[in-house]
Design a protein around this nucleic acid. Structure first.
Lengths: 206, 206
DNA sequence: AGGTTAATTTGAACAATGTTCACATGAGTA
DNA sequence: TACTCATGTGAACATTGTTCAAATTAACCT
């Protein structure tokens, strides 16, 4: 037995194809929306049969969910890159980074938040946990800014604040509604944080 | 010509059936979610053929959009019932009424916010306008509370605040995520408003 | 290398569902 | 009552997710 597991030719092809399928699906969702994602289109673009998509992902939801999972991962990575030096700046940074990411990948985020499972199967726990974790990223800076507050309350506050920012951004970017121009939306988010942090007794940036 | 337009037998049946179809569709969306809405199920429950559904609504989106439109109308009616006596109480009342309505009709609200049109047809303007109007209901009380502020800024603030509340509620009630218990969610919304209004220089309720 | 085997891939067939339209039905009218 | 035409019907079609028996092919053995 070789400890350094050699990747067999089969596994190589399989892995390459898996990545290819995901990249194609992501591109379609991103450019044309989740409703335009079709098994046959993906299979054809990947140069394989529809059966292979099913072998790899179980069902079509599997493809969507994997794309969604990678979307949360990418989002989390971006949010994790926000400087934690100054906690107030960090809060603004998280909100503005979320705005940037959402604007760049609106359809991917919509797929993440709007996709409903077939029948009544539950949404995978790991993805949900990753979203919750991302939304909890405001927790550390808030703890630093409100050292006397109960940790559970801060956890709730963190979720509330991030949900509020999410609402402002997702509706603001909703082109169905009269979309708010990006620059205005940025101001909107900043002014929202200004007021809210002030209300929490935290000295805002401006 | 009779000015008091007599409703012909045909029109009676047609109207009755139209209402029946809408009621059935609304019930299915409300109880089992938008994804479970099927033309054949609706037609069978309404005791007519699928063709009649198409005659009445053009296509299946037509049924969904009409249900969505009635949802906004019902929401607007509920929100309009909030007392405007005290502007601060009115803001809390709007948020809490939205929470109540959303909790009672979660799947209908999701249908309104998550439904995407087939192909790339645009979402009907009148429905969008009604949603925008509902979200503008915080405008009057805010004008009273911030008499010196620019009206355009208040309009934006109104939209921002309502969007934030929407985000907190829609994610809070998302059973996919770890749903926040209703009573806790109510507190969450209230505390959110407490902080935000304080930050705007408005004396909150508590 | 060639033969054997087992895993993988394939795509035709099936199932579910939105959509159409030629025909049947029946309300309105003379 | 008979005629006409708007309306209703549902079988047939189009699209798309899903399955699975058969073909393919990588892996292994001698």
């Amino acid at each position: 037995m070789n400890n350094v597991q050699e990747e067999s030719l089969r596994d190589q092809k399989k892995n390459r194809r898996r990545l290819l399928i995901l990249e194609i699906a992501r591109t379609i969702i991103s450019t044309k929306g989740l409703k335009s994602l079709k098994v046959r289109d993906v299979a054809e673009a990947a140069g394989c049969s529809v059966g292979s998509v099913y072998n790899e992902f179980g069902d079509f939801d599997g493809v969507i969910l994997t794309v969604n999972q990678e979307t949360v991962q990418a989002l989390t990575a971006r949010l994790a890159g926000v400087s934690a030096e100054d906690p107030v700046r960090q809060l603004y940074g998280l909100a503005e980074t979320y705005l940037e990411f959402f604007a760049e990948h609106a359809n991917l985020l919509r797929s993440l938040f709007e996709h409903r499972m077939e029948d009544d199967r539950p949404y995978p726990d790991d993805i949900l946990q990753m979203v919750m974790d991302a939304f909890a990223l405001m927790h550390p800076p808030l703890v630093r800014l409100l050292p006397d507050a109960d940790d559970v309350k801060i956890a709730l506050l963190s979720r509330t604040l991030f949900s509020a920012v999410h609402g402002i951004i997702s509706l603001g970017l909703e082109e169905r509604m009269v979309a708010v121009p990006p620059q205005l939306l940025r101001q909107q988010v900043e002014q929202f944080l200004d007021a809210h942090l002030a209300g929490l007794g935290i000295l805002p940036l401006r």
